[in-house]
């Protein structure tokens, strides 16, 4: 028989992992891009962009052809402040919901540790995480499209980098699942309230 038992050790491990994830994201998602923007850190100033009308044959052998037609890497050789902002803006925007989501998960884990997972605030936290996933995903797509457009605007490359939103449905699906989880938490909170004071 399959048994699943969440122990205090698991909660401690989760708390440590969340702390590590927060620290790593704070460094990779905020600190390094911020230093790059102000020119104190040299990072690769490039990103993958969708292209059109630039099909390039990369290799051909035995009747097989490998070509690049839909995406390419846009590199800014010596970016000025404005270009660095455009390059790092989507990453910096992503970091906000990620850090906030990790923090809320940490708060949920803390209630789990206290043996009170159906604390009244947990449904809002979990639903908030669902909203963060959806908004973060859509916001990243919009910001990436806008900054791509602004990076090439007024240059000969403009015609080859169309303004295009690339929306991934996976994060939206995950957000829907997490929202359902929030509803389960909400029902749990209500059930707990019903049994409080039951003798």
């Amino acid at each position: 028989m399959l048994t699943s038992r969440w122990t205090r050790g698991d909660t401690n491990l989760l708390t440590v992992l969340l702390g590590l994830a927060f620290a790593v994201e704070a460094v990779i998602g905020v600190l390094i891009p911020a230093l790059h923007v102000v020119g104190l850190f040299t990072a690769q100033s490039s990103r993958d962009v969708g292209v059109s009308g630039l099909e390039t044959a990369l290799a051909e052998a035995g009747g097989l052809k490998l070509s690049a037609a839909e995406s390419a890497t846009l590199t800014v050789a010596d970016p000025d402040l404005g270009q660095r902002i455009l390059l790092d803006l989507p990453g910096l925007f992503d970091a906000v919901p990620i850090l906030l989501g990790i923090y809320w998960l940490f708060l949920v884990a803390r209630t789990l540790r206290a043996g009170d997972p159906f604390a009244p605030r947990n449904p809002r936290r979990v639903f908030g995480i669902a909203v963060l996933i959806a908004v973060g995903s859509l916001g990243d797509s919009v910001l990436t499209a806008f900054t791509n457009h602004l990076l090439v605007a007024g240059t000969p490359l403009e015609d080859h980098v169309p303004f295009a939103l690339q929306i991934s449905f996976l994060p939206l699906g995950i957000a829907a699942v997490v929202a359902a989880l929030a509803e389960a938490f909400r029902v749990g909170v209500r059930l707990r309230a019903d049994t409080e004071g039951l003798v």
Partner: peptide, 22 residues
């Protein structure tokens, strides 16, 4: 076989509900 704490809750009017078994 009910805890004193629970019976005290009942006695002092702080209980919200009571099981038929209790």
């Amino acid at each position: 076989d009910v805890t004193v704490v629970n019976l005290s809750v009942l006695k002092n009017g702080r209980a919200k509900a009571i099981r038929f078994s209790t």
